[in-house]
Amino acid sequence: MHSDNRAPLPLKLAAAGGLFFLLAPIALIFVYAFTTEEKSFQWPPPGFTLKWIGVTLNRPDVWEALFLSLRVAAISTVIALALGTLTAAAVARSRFFGRETISLLVILPIALPGIITGISLRSAFSLLEIPFSTWTIVLGHATFCIVIVYNNAVARFRRTSGALIDAAMDLGADGVQTFTLVILPNIATALLAGGMLAFALSFDEVIVTTFTAGQQTTLPIWMLEELVRPRQRPVTNVVAMAVVLVTVLPILAAYYLTRDGEHTAGAEK
């Protein structure tokens, strides 16, 4: 939907105001990371310093939490990529009994509040006497990461004309060759985008994690502890800024990856 008319002023103001509302708090994070004030959230900041960045870099607890988060996010993303792609291929390419159920099933972990996923996994762990570990966190994360990859992949599969797969097989490519030479190159950017978003989602997740982590501390759990009982305000400010930076880059990359693929591959007329 596009119009050549100019937008009415009230609409412009409302849209600009909305964008400001969305972005201003994030900008604030960047200012507070450099404040000299240690005890409160005073505005305007009395002065600026780079000192807290150095202090944060020397904090082993922050590093440990960061590494656990990265590990969990990496494993969850790999699992989500495998399961999400397979499911998307089946749902987009064929009709079978239970197809609707599966597409609903995949959405369920994000349609239901995270707390439900968290508590049900936790009670299942305790019923089955499974001790908390990296893998219990991964189990929870992969469950809701699948849908991210699935959504990206299914959209691309639908846009990739089925005739391409027919054409590859017609020209003599077997299942494996068709996958590696035709399907994969056509869905690669969608998978990369889905994978990065899944990574960002897992890296950031806190609600399910509080139920499946036990005594382990991921970066978001470290943040949460600081939010509930602030002890290290300046360090928290710096960590918050770092987290924003880490999530911004994959989003920008995912945007550029999916932007170009908007035409239907292989169905040009």
Partner: peptide, 28 residues
């Protein structure tokens, strides 16, 4: 399966592989 048949198809929408150039398409 199609890949074991010595029969080839010219598709309605041509189904040229969008990620390959013309030469690689023909050589597929």
């Amino acid at each position: 399966p199609p890949y074991l048949r010595n029969v080839n198809t010219v598709f309605q929408s041509y189904a040229l592989f969008p990620h390959m150039n013309v030469l690689d398409n023909v050589a597929f």
